[in-house]
Measured scan of single mutants.
Amino acid sequence: MQGVVKVNSALNMRSGPGSNYGVIGTLRNNDKVEIIKEVDGWYEIRFNGKVGSASKSYITIVN
Score class of each variant (00 low, 15 high):
46 R>N: 09
19 S>R: 13
54 A>R: 00
46 R>E: 08
61 I>S: 04
48 N>I: 05
54 A>M: 06
19 S>I: 14
15 S>F: 06
31 D>P: 02
10 A>C: 15
46 R>S: 10
47 F>V: 09
47 F>G: 01
5 V>Q: 01
1 M>P: 07
61 I>L: 11
53 S>F: 15
30 N>V: 01
9 S>F: 14
1 M>D: 06
49 G>L: 05
22 G>V: 12
36 I>C: 07
35 I>Q: 01
10 A>H: 14
48 N>A: 11
50 K>I: 14
27 L>P: 01
11 L>Q: 09
5 V>I: 07
41 G>T: 06
44 E>N: 10
55 S>Q: 15
18 G>F: 02
42 W>Y: 10
15 S>W: 06
7 V>L: 05
35 I>F: 02
48 N>K: 12
39 V>I: 12
51 V>A: 07
35 I>C: 05
3 G>H: 02
49 G>H: 06
54 A>C: 13
53 S>C: 15
43 Y>G: 00
13 M>V: 15
57 S>F: 14
51 V>F: 09
23 V>P: 05
59 I>M: 02
56 K>A: 12
34 E>C: 13
39 V>R: 07
21 Y>M: 04
27 L>S: 00
62 V>M: 11
42 W>I: 00
34 E>N: 06
47 F>C: 04
58 Y>G: 13
5 V>F: 02
48 N>R: 11
57 S>H: 14
9 S>L: 11
50 K>Q: 12
23 V>E: 04
27 L>M: 05
21 Y>V: 02
25 G>T: 10
52 G>L: 03
18 G>L: 02
39 V>N: 08
62 V>Y: 10
9 S>M: 10
19 S>E: 15
36 I>R: 04
20 N>K: 12
27 L>I: 05
30 N>Q: 08
34 E>W: 14
50 K>A: 10
41 G>P: 01
32 K>E: 10
42 W>E: 00
11 L>H: 06
45 I>E: 00
44 E>K: 07
15 S>Q: 09
12 N>L: 15
48 N>Q: 13
56 K>R: 07
6 K>W: 06
63 N>A: 13
27 L>D: 01
6 K>D: 05
62 V>C: 13
36 I>P: 01
44 E>Q: 11
7 V>G: 10
15 S>G: 08
10 A>V: 15
63 N>L: 11
51 V>L: 11
7 V>M: 04
63 N>K: 11
22 G>K: 14
43 Y>N: 00
51 V>W: 07
25 G>R: 02
19 S>H: 14
27 L>E: 01
49 G>V: 04
47 F>S: 04
9 S>W: 12
29 N>P: 10
61 I>K: 07
45 I>C: 03
29 N>V: 06
16 G>A: 02
1 M>L: 13
56 K>P: 04
3 G>Y: 04
30 N>I: 03
25 G>E: 11
43 Y>V: 04
8 N>T: 13
15 S>M: 07
44 E>M: 15
44 E>W: 14
28 R>C: 14
46 R>Q: 08
36 I>Q: 04
37 K>E: 06
32 K>P: 08
56 K>S: 11
62 V>G: 07
18 G>Q: 02
30 N>D: 10
52 G>R: 00
4 V>C: 12
63 N>H: 13
28 R>S: 10
32 K>Q: 11
19 S>G: 10
2 Q>I: 15
31 D>L: 04
36 I>V: 09
59 I>R: 00
25 G>S: 08
43 Y>P: 00
52 G>K: 00
58 Y>R: 06
33 V>T: 01
56 K>L: 06
4 V>A: 04
26 T>Q: 12
21 Y>R: 03
56 K>M: 11
42 W>M: 02
28 R>E: 09
40 D>T: 06
32 K>A: 10
3 G>C: 10
58 Y>F: 13
51 V>G: 05
16 G>E: 03
9 S>H: 14
24 I>K: 02
29 N>T: 08
1 M>S: 10
53 S>M: 15
59 I>Y: 01
22 G>F: 09
46 R>T: 08
41 G>V: 05
40 D>E: 10
57 S>G: 11
29 N>R: 08
8 N>V: 12
7 V>I: 10
10 A>N: 11
49 G>T: 04
58 Y>A: 11
18 G>D: 05
24 I>L: 06
44 E>C: 15
20 N>D: 12
5 V>R: 00
50 K>H: 09
55 S>N: 14
57 S>C: 14
40 D>R: 09
56 K>E: 04
10 A>W: 15
63 N>R: 11
25 G>A: 13
48 N>C: 10
52 G>C: 06
32 K>H: 11
39 V>T: 11
31 D>R: 01
38 E>Y: 06
35 I>G: 00
13 M>L: 14
60 T>G: 06
17 P>S: 05
16 G>C: 08
46 R>Y: 11
35 I>R: 00
61 I>T: 07
52 G>N: 03
2 Q>V: 14
28 R>G: 07
58 Y>I: 04
11 L>M: 10
48 N>E: 12
26 T>L: 13
13 M>H: 04
27 L>Y: 00
23 V>G: 00
7 V>P: 02
37 K>D: 11
63 N>C: 13
26 T>P: 04
20 N>F: 10
57 S>N: 13
16 G>P: 04
8 N>K: 14
25 G>L: 10
12 N>K: 14
24 I>E: 03
18 G>V: 00
6 K>A: 08
36 I>S: 03
60 T>R: 12
35 I>V: 10
